[in-house]
Nucleic acid binder design. Structure first.
Lengths: 117, 117
DNA sequence: CCAATGTTTCAATTAATGTTGAAATAAGGC
DNA sequence: GCCTTATTTCAACATTAATTGAAACATTGG
């Protein structure tokens, strides 16, 4: 078996990782995960995390575009929730490509000088 | 129990996510994971992924600073390997804060108009 | 010591990202 | 319809990240 990478889900994974690779956004997402199906409105998030409303809006959009959260209007409020299946997919990808699915050991040594033919 | 976030490992997690949130770096890391303990030298990585040597060096440094890979000199070669325990920690963090450790359901509804006291 | 190869650093450029204040939009209550 | 509140958009700015060519450094072999 040859060393080979599967680039199929790559762009989606990179987007999701990038969305979470920022302090404010990671906090927002964790907060939404913590509140579960009830979700939260931007006002509550902004107050809880002390993020200005427009900055938060920007970050929510990023998370939304990455497919990690979704929104639902409720009157004049907008409720955001974490997309748990999407997050599960991300973790599954990471797990699959971290330890090749299960273990992390045992590969034959390669000679650095021997370039791939 | 109150909604509360643990910011302890946050900066490390953000760094690791940021390191992986880039196509070239994700490919490099996945390649190193794939080769396991034998690791690879920059030359091999550059050739395999068709990344210019200096660009690769930049990305390797980023991954290294994020603690996801480590290097070991072997003569005039430098061997890079994925830091599997570090990756496992990252995945564990993600898992813990994705579904609160295990499940993803059941939280009481909150009223958006009711701000946290 | 010199030449050859592998790898990194440097400097410069370009592109992308995060933040902010002010203005605009959306919906509900009067 | 108008006021109030919630949320988003816009424009501008500051910061940071990615890419490249050229030069420098490190190590081995002759």
């Amino acid at each position: 078996m040859k060393t080979q990478l599967d680039f199929s889900a790559e762009t989606a994974v990179v987007s999701a990782l990038a969305a979470l690779a920022q302090t404010s956004r990671l906090r927002v997402f964790r907060l939404l995960v913590g509140t579960g199906p009830s979700g939260l409105c931007p006002g509550q998030i902004a107050e809880t995390l002390e993020i200005p409303a427009n900055s938060l809006s920007f970050h929510l959009k990023e998370l939304h575009h990455a497919g990690l959260i979704y929104q639902q209007r409720e009157g004049r409020f907008l409720r955001y929730r974490a997309d748990m299946p999407a997050m599960k997919e991300l973790i599954d990808f990471m797990t699959a490509h971290c330890c090749n699915g299960e273990h992390c050991a045992g590969m034959p040594e390669l000679d650095c000088a021997a370039t791939t033919s």
